[in-house]
Nucleic acid binder design. Sequence first.
RNA 1: GUGGGAGUAGCUCAGCUGGUAGAGCGUCGGUCUGUGGCACCGAAUGUCGCGGGUUCAAUCCCCGUCUCCCACCCCA
Length: 520
Amino acid sequence: MTYKQFQAIRGTRDLLPPDTALWNRVEQTAHEVFTTYGYGEIRPPVIEPTELFARAVGGDTDIVSKEMYSFVDYGVARVAALGNAITDWPDPTNDEKDFSAYKNTVSAFIDTYHRAVAADELHPSSANKPAIEEVQSRFDALRSCSLQNEKSRELASQIIRAIYLAVRIAELGDYVTLRPEATASVCRAYIEHNMQQLPQPVKLYYLGPMFRRERPQKGRYRQFYQIGAEILGGPDAPAIDAELLEMLMTFFAKLGLEGTTLDINSIGHAADNCRRGYVAKLREELLKVKDKLGADSQRRIETNPLRVLDSKLEHEQPIIAALPRIADHLCDDCKTHYAAVKRDLDLRGVAYHENWRLVRGLDYYMRTTFEITAMDLGSQNAVCGGGRYDGLVELLGGPPTKGIGFAIGEDRLILSLQESGKGAAPQGRDVYIAWMGEKTYATAIRAAKNLRNAGFSVELPPTEQKFGKALERASKLGARFALILGDNEIQSGEWTLKNLATSEQQKLTEQALLEYLRRT
RNA sequence: GUGGGAGUAGCUCAGCUGGUAGAGCGUCGGUCUGUGGCACCGAAUGUCGCGGGUUCAAUCCCCGUCUCCCACCCCA
């Protein structure tokens, strides 16, 4: 026994049976429903260049630095680690031993840098190249210096400064990030594989783990799971928005998720006469009532006035209710689009709730935005969010491309299904083979193999058990039938099958057994 | 990142403001060598989250730390 047990790192967890059966049901349903709408599955890597997410999400450094799992790639990390060791070195010129260790480390740093460049793991930039060259030249000078003189001390501090520049400021190396969401990856893949040459629009879905370095709470993990879909290319026809929403609601209905409501809104597009005009107007109105708002909302007046609408503070509600609404400021195109989406949803029989306060935090979202909430999820009650993002592919270096998509928080979806009693039952068995006696063992193996081949779930106990014990275990495991194999059965060739729910027993030949089980 | 609550057996929890640990459920075995669910009997499993302090003595009091939960922040 070790003293310290390993445990899953903060915000991550094991998904175990029987819960995993529910996860599989959810994912299987996604595959089925999305396929009927003509979507194909995409599986992008979970790791991407940090820059991809930084650009997609926007310049907000808070998100980039605080909430993403980012790190430097391997070969490069060694360069950076050596550099950090050097910059943290107290005073290398104090004693001979320390001084020579220091020189070795600097030498290793320069060496590792060049090796990383040669191996194409690291790219010399206009920022880090001169810094490295400076380190090199100071180091050459330092090598001929003796210990403990003014010159060596001066050179050492210059080296530290140069390395600091190289490592900390010039961002030595390639930065990678565990994906915090998949939309950016899907757009990257669309561009990288020239999917604009496929019949448009391209409809893709994905599912899998995402990572965010947030403080964990219920339904909110550092490794969490999303199921999402994106439609890229083609027109921005309202029918596309409506069909996407129809598919979503179908998916939730098939899962039996209760208390779902679909909130929709249109936030116009970025141009002057549409959202930009509205945001200016909103900010203007907010400034008039600034004193009555909480600190968070006051800050947002400057940073992101739209998010003030999200506020849940009780005393701000009447103020917010009186604010100008974006629906009254949409340009004609956006207004028409929004009306058409709603009309299309009516045609499809998709119930929705218009929520003029539903906004998205990011600039690239436009026009249709939506959110789906389920019952009883505490403050984190949204299970799905999404919207139209016609500018994103272009922002990432691709051709102008229309886009719309959503992401479902699978962890919360599962939680909600479990809380409304839609959780998975423990996995039972179809047949438990109660065998006794050396001679029956071979028959038991054959029976197990044949039943499994026929698709039944079979438990074959590894050691001989008394029949009483065997039946006890069979019922504990939730088996439907016990197949009793003893001397009598081997002799007569008629096996005993016991229905554990009704206690009824019957004799069946090997062939008849298969047929009987298939019928029930 | 901020604030609050909690961590005792596999699970749910009890444990008197200090005297080195308990129940129920579950697991395993027996009563029971060809018949399960019931009943009865028995057993195993705990560095009382971790580290330090106070004390003759700490699961209990104090400090730190980790993890979980709740709220905030944020929400791609």
